[in-house]
Nucleic acid binder design. Structure first.
Length: 941
RNA sequence: UGGAGUGUAGCUCAGUGGGAGAGCAUCCCCUUCACACGGGGAGGGUCGUAGGUUCAAUCCCUAUCACUCCAACCA
């Protein structure tokens, strides 16, 4: 079914503003898409239809759009719009993430500003209580959620808003509880006392991923541990009779308070006599065993290692291997615990100073040197996170990781660029159990209840009405106060958003999703965990392709950050230049494997591109209106493509040419989208629309339009058809401007209702339009025009100055060519007339002095321009000399090649032939140029 | 320490086994009836360095340097 719309919305050139002004229409157009339900997917595919689905990487609900969002959402929107136009049942599902720590921190900051608590300190969440604080946070969420979603709309994202989800909405919370309970029942979730990263400032546990290893300048302190016999008193002697001691270097001297052993390598001969002895812990005097463990590197430092199992991940492992006591000296409050003796109550940094001071005084510090150390910073607040031992909930990750590894190994999931697979494997092979409990309030509270009566734990989907273990009343049960890591709920995103655990139609239609597009910085946080959860709970991978885009940086290549003040705000850019230019810029730079260095200059350039398209459309309207005034009619139910195909042989060469070139553009754009090389598509569109369509086609169409009649009519059809096709091709990348312009077209085809470009079929290349003959003709035309423009430019001739050109044709065909196209040639090169030189078949020797001579090979003609009154002879001589030099270089190059026997023997014959031919052409050209130069010289004398 | 990526015109980036391209910036000419958010012309690069394969290398291989990112248990 098709319908021609050529009245209602058809607007003349006058209705399009003078230039591209995106502010005039972007918001209106987005609203019209929403009103018409254009973004909505169907739960069930139509017969023969494919589903295409993607989930948005949910931005933080209280976040603000940054360039990274702009990039990922532009890319995703392109894919989605393209698939929609290809006829797929297309779902792009929106939503936001509750972002536990980030959101809670913002609300805490707000209440702190509001007043003082009972102790006179700023209000904290504890002053409000859990319930009131959560109410505040929900309110905050309601107030801020629209910010980011509104910004996504400004960008043009065609998300199915009716399906918008939030990681803490009822459905997703149910999914979270379901997953937690099932994993618990399968022994894949457990609660245990383990070493974890703790942020003393945020007062919560963090996963390994949430601490950023950072290099800081520090020191190596060499500390003496004296060695005694088992009795704890008698010094052990070295072979030479001196008292045995172990000098151990550390970057964190304060941790010695929690040392429970010192270790040496079992094969270290130097310390064999210390095996089984005791070390005296400096300052505290506690006796700790000397143990042997192959983890210790003999070559490093003194070969001795202090072991602090409660505050170091490696020491923790050693401690477990050797059944060492775990002494927690660093408390959750950031201060030394009572186990730290006289250091108790000191902040960690203070304790370090005191320990060093005391060691010095006890003469146990033998050396201090500079050393860089690695510390873990809290991802959120950038304070130092300390490893401490604490009771937390964990996901036993090994059994989940195994199939997730296999999915990528087998190619069931493919990463692009492929190199990221290596990174993925590396992490997955060495994955550690995932600490999922957080000591926060904002999040999914852990569905575990502790019975005050029998002390048992109950994990359940809903709050139990009595203790299932001992039958105690609900009042005895207390729910775990902790909440889950935010990423726990995001891991379920591809299926929880589609209604899981219910078996919904949507789930059936859209899972697995087609593609995941995201940043490489969340491969571990998000991608890997979605793969694990998807396979475990859905029995299938959540997606088959993972596309990872680059990072957006500023024009100098620095990371954008508020503190550096180099942030380019996408919304400001959209306000100033429009969403389409920003989208086009990001797309054209989104080649994989390279960071995107964004500059506003670039956006301005593409704004110029939008303006160019805008004005090309205005040109169409101008011509169309003029034709209408002359009474040139358009047949009812007009199908331009059909008409053009039917009348192909009678079309003007430029019309056939642009139709032919259009097919190449369509193929390039399509291939770019298929291969996920969106920058290729963008480039193809840019080159075709600007440099072929605008630069040449529109210029060449002006004559037929002036001429009127059939020539004008077929040209207006061609112009319309090409414009409409280009609009559709560009639409996925630049949705707004293409919709606005498409709506203005008088006989656009509405194949699919509602009448919006975003639902019309994406163009397909049609070989019937391919036309090598017209391509050849226009190439020849361009070469004559360019030669004349070059002559004009080199001699600084104003376009106002018109001059006649005499020509000598090298063949009958060339003569015909010039005569046939003299009008076009004259118009585009501003030549007053072309005059053929009769007779004189003597080759390049003819012509009077005082003429510029421009020899061409395709078409084989020689152009002559009388210099009298036009240019000064010396200028023209310079141009000639330059030309001659250029040709001479060409000749030398070709001859060098042809003089090599191996080249003649081994290179393809066609190539050799081609080079020979070129040699001949070059030599002839040089002769003519030289002859012209001679005559000019004669003139000067 | 491992892994990956990048190195092409002043800047930002495309690109290909057969003589190096675009946009911006620079210089010159133009308000010519779609567009000065424009048109035309010009200058500018031994395609990081050194070897190798090939008739032919900016492209393939090897080494090397520089920068960037990722993962790391050397206290």
């Amino acid at each position: 079914m098709s319908e021609i719309d050529r009245s209602g919305t058809a607007v003349g050139a006058n209705s399009l503003s003078k230039s591209y002004e995106p502010q005039q229409f972007e918001t209106r157009i987005y609203q019209s898409w929403l009103d018409q339900g254009c973004f909505e997917a169907k739960d069930q595919n139509a017969p023969g239809q494919n589903a295409f689905s993607m989930v948005i990487p949910p931005p933080n609900v209280t976040g603000v759009l940054h360039m990274g969002h702009a990039l990922t959402n532009t890319i995703q929107d392109i894919l989605v719009r393209w698939h929609r136009m290809m006829g797929d049942n297309t779902l792009w599902l929106p939503g936001t993430d509750h972002a536990g720590i980030a959101t809670q921190a913002q609300v805490e900051k707000q209440i702190a500003k509001e007043g003082k608590g009972p102790t006179g300190k700023p209000l904290t969440r504890h002053d409000l209580g859990r319930e009131a604080f959560l109410a505040r946070t929900w309110k905050w969420k309601e107030e801020h959620a629209n910010t980011i979603t509104g910004q996504l709309k400004r960008l043009g994202s065609s998300l199915d808003w009716k399906r918008e989800r939030f990681t803490m909405d009822e459905g997703l919370s149910q999914a979270v509880r379901e997953v937690f309970v099932r994993l618990y029942e399968e022994d894949l979730i457990y609660r245990g006392e383990r070493i974890i990263n703790w942020c003393p400032r945020c007062q919560t546990a963090l996963s390994d991923l949430e601490t950023i290893p950072t290099e800081r300048k520090g020191h190596f302190w060499h500390i003496v541990y004296k060695i005694v016999e088992a009795d704890g008193v008698t010094p052990v002697k070295n072979a030479d009779g001196t008292p045995a001691e172990l000098v151990i270097a550390t970057t964190r001297p304060e941790t010695l308070l929690g040392d429970t052993a010192v270790a040496v390598n079992p094969d270290d001969e130097r310390y064999r006599h210390l095996h089984g002895k005791q070390a005296v812990l400096p300052l505290l005097g506690r006796l700790i065993p000397v143990i042997t463990d192959s983890y210790v590197d003999k070559e490093f430092g003194s070969g001795g290692l202090k072991v602090t199992p409660a505050h170091d991940f490696n020491d923790y492992e050693i401690g477990k291997r050797h059944n060492l006591p775990f002494i927690s000296v660093m408390g959750k409050d950031g201060r030394i615990t009572p186990a730290g003796g006289s250091y108790a109550g000191l902040k960690f940094a203070e304790a370090r100073e005191r320990v060093i001071q005391d060691l010095k005084e006890a003469q146990l510090l033998v050396k201090t040197e500079d050393h860089a150390l690695k510390i873990g910073l809290c991802q959120r607040c950038e304070n130092i996170a300390e490893p401490i031992v604490s009771k937390q909930w964990f996901v036993k990750i090994g059994p989940l990781a195994k199939p997730a590894i296999e999915a990528v190994e087998s190619g069931k999931i493919q990463f692009s660029p492929k190199s990221w697979e290596k990174t993925y494997f590396e992490w997955m092979y060495n994955i550690r159990d995932w600490c999922i409990s957080r000591q926060l309030w904002w999040g999914h509270q852990i569905p575990a209840w502790y019975c005050g009566h029998c002390q048992e734990v109950t994990v359940a989907r809903e709050a139990p009405t009595k203790c299932p273990k001992c039958g105690a009343a609900a009042s005895e049960l207390k729910q775990d106060e902790d909440v889950l890591d935010t990423w726990f709920s995001s891991a379920l995103w591809p299926f929880s958003t589609l209604g899981w655990p219910e078996k919904t139609r949507a789930l059936e239609t859209f899972y697995p999703t087609s593609i995941l597009e995201t940043g490489f910085d969340i491969i571990f946080f998000w991608v890997a965990r979605m793969i694990m959860m998807g396979i475990h709970f859905m029995g299938d991978v959540p997606f088959h392709k993972v596309y990872l885009h680059a990072m957006v940086r500023d024009e100098k290549g620095d990371k954008m950050s508020k503190s550096k003040g180099n942030v380019i705000d996408p919304l400001v850019v959209i306000d100033q230049h429009g969403a389409d230019p920003l989208r086009f810029t990001l797309t054209s730079m989104a080649g994989q494997g390279r960071d995107i260095k964004l500059s506003v200059d670039r956006v301005e350039n593409f704004r110029g591109f939008c303006n160019k398209i805008w004005n090309a459309t205005k040109f169409f309207h101008l011509q169309f209106d003029a034709l209408k005034d002359k009474g040139v009619g358009i047949p009812a139910d007009f199908d331009a493509e059909k008409w053009l195909l039917g009348n192909l042989p009678t079309l003007l060469p430029q019309n056939r040419w642009i139709l032919s070139r259009l097919q190449v553009a369509i193929a390039r754009v399509q291939k770019g989208f298929e291969d996920f090389e969106l920058n290729e598509s963008a480039q193809a569109l840019y080159e075709f629309s600007w440099h072929e369509f605008c630069d040449w086609y529109i210029e060449l169409s002006k004559l037929p339009f002036r001429e009127g009649g059939d020539a004008a009519q077929q040209s207006i059809y061609t112009l319309h058809y090409v414009l409409e096709t280009v609009m559709k091709l560009m639409h996925p990348i630049m949705p707004f401007v293409t919709e606005e312009l498409w709506q203005s077209l008088p006989f656009k085809r509405v194949v699919q209702k509602p009448a919006t470009i975003m639902l019309q079929p994406f163009p397909k290349a049609n070989a019937a339009f391919t036309d090598s003959e017209s391509e050849q003709t226009i190439a020849a035309l361009k070469s004559v025009i360019e030669a004349l423009r070059n002559f004009r430019g080199e001699n600084n001739l104003s376009p106002k100055v018109e001059f006649p050109v005499r020509y000598r044709a090298g063949s009958v065909g060339a003569d015909t060519f010039i005569r046939l196209h003299s009008a076009d040639l004259q118009a585009l090169s501003r030549v007053s007339k072309f005059e053929r030189i009769e007779g004189d078949h003597g080759g390049g020797s003819g012509g009077s002095s005082g003429e510029a001579i421009i020899p061409l090979t395709n078409p084989p003609v020689e152009l002559r321009i009388s210099l009298a009154g036009l240019v000064n002879v010396e200028e023209e001589s310079k141009r000639l000399v330059k030309e001659i030099e250029k040709v001479s270089e060409d000749i030398a190059f070709v001859q060098r090649k042809l003089s090599q026997e191996t080249f003649i023997a081994k290179a393809p014959k066609e190539l050799v032939e081609k080079e020979r031919k070129r040699e001949g052409e070059f030599v002839a050209k040089r002769q003519e140029l030289q002859a012209a130069l001679e005559r000019l010289k004669a003139l000067v004398k």
